[in-house]
Design a protein around this nucleic acid. Structure first.
Length: 421
RNA sequence: GUGGCCGUAGCUCAGCUGGUGGUAGCGCCAGGUUGUGAUCCUGGAGGUCGGGGGUUCAAGUCCCCUCGGUCACCCCA
């Protein structure tokens, strides 16, 4: 066993998975940048207070924070998500609204790791600040949907709910509390704990004996103000108009306290596990204000990279892109020719690799084959003396041919064009 | 954080109720092919059986602790 390995819940992403990660981010950037979103790269670490605003009663804040005191006696934390950082950035820089930002990067939560849940986990996401329009809710949700479609995923389910205005939500919480308190000791102890902290989350309980109380609980729609109901109706109509399918889930409350109005979640259809939430988001019209800024509406979502890729695996879509070089140079005459030829090819935009340490031709040919290159360029002592090179196709059955060194680049270019067409 | 299962080569794993030498496949390296891969044949390298302690004449196998993974709960991405 190695003396050191990665800390629990943290891991190395190696090829070919790493190139898949890069492609994933690239597809996401294409989708959201085509809608006017601009990249923001917030710091990995912030003042703890930035994240406390997520909700004093949430697990993310109370037990999952990676926080510590730095050498300047500042109480800081690794970010558990990026929404709060984006809002803090908004307050700090005051960009013109609507401010449409997208991001990609790691977050940290101190949890017990399992498949699809890591202590360091990557998310991509978008946030829009300064716009209250329900059509923006539609845009944000539809962009998430479009991204899944672009990856090739077909079995993603969109769940939708509205938590109403803050006052609606507060009255609903009161009603829920009364409802669950009436159940008394028939409620599981865990749910009674949850009830004391955040009655909404009792709705998330998967324990059998709680089911009948959850079933009979009041639903949020009875508490929507006319404005909240109208906002939500426009969102639903807009999604329908765009052909984005969804299901209404009145029990979808989401774990973070700042949500109000529209909330949504993308669930993987094939992931038969507790980690089937691929992504989620919603409106958080009070968060900027909580961070010391002006009252500013906001909406956004975050999608988990790991879980989405697991869903891709299950559906057999979005595999690792081909990262093979175009040409592999085999040089049995010492290696200097391989040095010159690879340097020239690379500078001319043709990707090329080679062997080192003057290995046997057989070994170099094996390496050439393994590299996935379309062609091998072979230089032996005969070719070196004659000023020629052998070009051999590796992925088709065609014969090899000898060309002059001076014609090598143009020859390879035309062959590569033919091979890829 | 609580509980179940698991931990043998780089990877996937065999090893029955503890009993003489640690398996196999893939991968890697070399040779067969004195200048040619992918196929085939032969050979080779590679292991503190996760770590520590204990029981026993004897532990990969049993017990305890510990580390790591995994699944469920909790919660979420």
């Amino acid at each position: 066993m190695p003396a050191f390995q990665t800390s629990p819940g943290m891991r190395d992403i190696l090829a070919p998975e790493s190139s898949r990660w890069r492609a994933f981010t690239s597809v996401f950037a294409d989708v959201v940048e085509s809608a006017g979103y601009e990249l923001i790269v917030p710091p990995l670490m912030e003042d703890l207070g930035v994240f406390s605003r997520i909700g004093e009663a949430t697990d993310v804040v109370t037990k999952e924070m990676y926080d510590f005191i730095d050498k300047g006696d500042r109480h800081v934390a690794l970010r558990p998500e990026q929404t709060a950082s984006v809002c803090r950035a908004f307050v700090q820089h005051r960009p013109v609204t609507p401010w449409k930002a997208w991001y990609s990067g790691p977050n940290f939560r101190y949890e017990k790791p399992q498949r699809g849940r890591y202590r360091q986990f990557d998310q991509v996401g978008i946030e829009v600040l300064g716009v209250d329009d329900p059509y923006l809710d539609v845009e944000v949700i539809a962009l998430g949907w479009e991204f899944y479609r672009r990856l090739g995923l077909r079995q993603v389910e969109l769940r939708l709910n509205s938590l109403g205005e803050p006052a609606d939500r507060a009255r609903y919480v009161d009603a829920l509390r009364a409802h669950f308190e009436a159940a008394g000791d028939d409620l599981t102890p865990q749910s009674r704990d949850t009830l004391a902290k955040n009655p909404l989350r009792v709705l998330d309980s998967k324990r059998e004996s709680d089911a009948r109380f959850i079933e009979s609980a009041p639903t949020i729609d009875q508490f929507w103000s006319p404005e909240a109901a109208a906002h939500f109706a426009t969102v639903r109509a807009g999604l329908t108009e765009l052909g984005v399918p969804f299901t209404i889930d009145m029990k979808l409350v989401r774990g973070l306290d700042y949500y109000r109005h529209t909330t949504f979640e993308f669930a993987g259809g094939t992931l038969d596990s507790a980690q089937n939430a691929l992504g989620g988001g919603g409106r958080y019209d009070g968060l900027v204000e909580d961070l010391g800024g002006p009252a500013t509406p906001g909406i956004g979502f975050a999608l988990g990279v790991d879980r989405t890729l697991l869903a891709c695996d299950d559906e057999g879509v979005f595999g690792a892109p081909d990262s093979a070089v175009a040409v592999f140079v085999v040089d049995t005459a010492g290696g200097a020719a391989a040095m010159s030829i690879t340097a020239e090819l690379r500078s001319q935009g043709v990707s090329a690799d080679r062997s080192y340490e003057n290995r046997s031709m057989k070994a170099q040919m094996k390496a050439a084959n393994r590299s996935g290159a379309e062609f091998a360029v072979i230089i032996g002592t005969d070719e070196l003396d004659a000023g020629t090179a052998i070009v051999k196709p590796l992925r088709t059955t065609g014969d090899q041919s000898t060309v002059n060194r001076s014609d090598l680049l143009t020859d390879l270019r035309s062959r590569l064009q033919e091979a890829t067409s």
